[in-house]
Design a protein around this nucleic acid. Sequence first.
DNA 1: GCCCAGGTATAAA
DNA 2: TTTATACATGGG
Length: 278
Amino acid sequence: MEYKITERGAEIKLNDVFNLKNTFDCGQCFRWTENNDGSYSGIVKGKYVRVLSDNCNIIIEGTNEEDFHNIWKSYFDLDNDYNEIRKEISELCPKLVCALESMDGIRILAQEPWEALCSFIISQNNNIPRIKGIVTRLCEGFGEKGENGYSFPSAERIAQCSTEELAPLRAGFRAAYISDAARKISERKIVLEDMYTMPMDECRKKLMEIKGVGPKVAECTLLYGLHRLDAFPVDVWMKKALSTLFSGLRAEELGRYAGVAQQYIFHYSRLNPENVSI
DNA sequence: GCCCAGGTATAAA
DNA sequence: TTTATACATGGG
């Protein structure tokens, strides 16, 4: 990865392709919006940027040297070469080559842990447009207002909210889960940042102490919020895809990049729904 | 109206 | 330990 910081922002040359649409609209995040020209805008840690991509060349518009190093380099996983990751996955599991080739340029974002946890609690039994709506109302209602939009509200802020205050989110039964998560995080009964290095089984167990967090939400939090690329969210679709499209493939076969593989499997199964049903 | 949405808590087999 | 049902809401 090479880069230079200009007046415009960070201009980066990668070894692998960065496909914005596949990355931002694949269901791993809910707060990036596409602009008319195909670029995307979003806010992370209260900082707004616009991202443009031309295959391996990307521009993070509106950032500076400091934020590039402290936020964007890790957020966009720029130090990982996804050609290398795909190569490792395909050597470990040749069955997946069709999936790896089906969707070029996906990256697994390193989102903020609390935002990921909260977002995936909201995602349960829900669809992406409505998840985005709830997350937007959460930010506009309780986040900090900046020049170009709102930040994601802290767990401390949400923990202060009564049931009535959360009602405008129209999150349904998930509102109580959001409250419980916010309380446990703000009281430090659960410390998400510890989970960057904790053994996976401990992380899962700890996360599932939160009401409304089951195996799926726990894995999503670990994969997308703590960048644990070995996490492996399994839902109904994944179960079906593993047993049909990939003839009995097991998660344990996928190694340290299981989470990346999972993203490709999910996409491939969505592209070929007729081959997924049992 | 009816069905479903990358689930989970709860109560029953 | 496994299997059924309710859960709030809104878009198709």
